[in-house]
């Protein structure tokens, strides 16, 4: 399962909307081993394409070194599909080179809703996982009492079973 802060998801969706109809891409870094995405890094799509994305190799070197210096790793690698569903393409699978990362896909084909799905891609095998969007504003250890009209603090997007 990918647990990710709502503010980060909002920033990723905003990036994908901003670059639409081109594909947007980026990374969310987090402390090594913690499996927690904390630092959103929007990346340039060097391909500037509606159907392809590619990190700029020099920007990637800089960002990967920075992560190394901060004892971080790429917890999430995201990109958008702008006319198709949020499911890894064959291209996505053949390139997937970070076995520890959550590959997050956002589809912006609908103008009013986003499809957000997350996958593990290891040795060419794609496994979908649920995405749990967490509201950081709510202390998870606090005792919560629900009253009428109150919205829940977390939303679970279950796998679609594909």
């Amino acid at each position: 399962m990918l647990s990710i802060d709502r503010s980060i998801i909002d920033a990723i969706v905003a990036h994908a909307r901003r670059d639409h109809p081109d594909e947007a891409c980026g990374v969310v870094a987090g402390p090594v081993g913690a499996d927690t995405p904390t630092r959103h890094i929007p990346m340039e799509n060097a391909a500037r394409s509606m159907t392809f994305y590619e990190f700029d190799s020099m920007e990637q070197l800089r960002v990967w070194r920075e992560m190394d210096d901060r004892d971080e790793e790429p917890v999430v690698i995201y990109h958008s599909h702008t006319a198709t569903e949020a499911y890894p393409s064959r291209t996505d699978i053949s390139f997937a080179g970070e076995p520890g990362a959550h590959y997050l896909l956002v589809s912006t084909r609908e103008s009013d809703t986003e499809e957000i799905r997350s996958f593990r891609i290891v040795d060419g095998v794609v496994t979908e996982e649920p995405v749990r969007i967490v509201d950081a504003a709510v202390d998870p250890h606090a005792v919560q009492s629900y009253m009428f009209g109150q919205s829940p603090a977390t939303v679970d997007y279950e796998c679609s079973g594909r």
Binding site: S49, W64, T91, E98
Partner: peptide
């Protein structure tokens, strides 16, 4: 580093 790339389109294209 692993190149980070992909996208909706087929590989050849």
């Amino acid at each position: 580093l692993p190149a980070v790339a992909g996208g909706a389109f087929g590989f050849a294209a």
